[in-house]
Amino acid sequence: MAVSDKDIIVCEGVKKWFGDFQALKGVTTTVKEGEVVVIIGPSGSGKSTFIRCINRLEQHQEGVIVVDGVEMTNDVRNIEKIRSEVGMVFQQFNLFPHLTVLDNITLAPLWVRKRTKTDAQERGMQLLNRVGIPEQAEKYPGQLSGGQQQRVAIARALAMEPRIMLFDEPTSALDPEMIKEVLDAMKELARSGMTMIVVTHEMGFAREVADRVLFFDYGTIVEEGTPEHFFTNPQHDRTKLFLSQIL
């Protein structure tokens, strides 16, 4: 694993409210290029909100987020630039049900990257090979299993050749027997040197793949460290409590 010294994501005192509810209470952290960061924490702790702020699916109200040297503001051009460099995989897959699997994957390369159709399709088939389901290319998402859909979603995000991948609880909506196939695809991606931020409850994955683990609670980072330290020697009481409940 090649973690460079270059900071690719810098967050400084990020705050976010939903109405009166404060979801993020000032998050400060940096992610280096090639690093795999796993975020864990109880539900409602703000971890999903945080990674959604990184590609501006949610707007933070205070603080600074800089992705690859571009600051997140209301400027539409900045947002579009960042979104084409940050891939995202959702808990509910969010595949486009009216398009075939291959069209799902080639959509963004065609319309955003202005690739030719043959080119985009060739690359789409490569990606489907990489996630292990080339035979499903002409089917519709509704005809696939959950695990297959999530792998298509990963391929769709990769089709834009992003430099960063965000995973928002990618295995939470899956049946147990399908979790492994998705995690395998993610592990393969991590080994290839992709910068990844993963929100997950899969502790095995965190232990095996993560360079760093962030523990979120009450809208802020309570504790962060390497997986070994984190799982063997947690410091904060909340971390201990959480780990004792989940492990």
Binding site: N55, L57, E80, R83, S84, V86, G87, M88, F90, Q92, N94, L95, F96, P97, H98, L107, A108, W111, V112, A153, R156, A157, A159, M160
Partner: peptide
């Protein structure tokens, strides 16, 4: 809502995802 989010997350512009994703559905 996830459709809009997924579409904008892969970099489609507002006019593009309205035309390609939201309206057909």
């Amino acid at each position: 809502r996830g459709q809009t989010e997924a579409a904008s997350a892969i970099g489609l512009k507002r006019s593009q995802y309205l035309r390609l994703i939201i309206l057909p559905q």
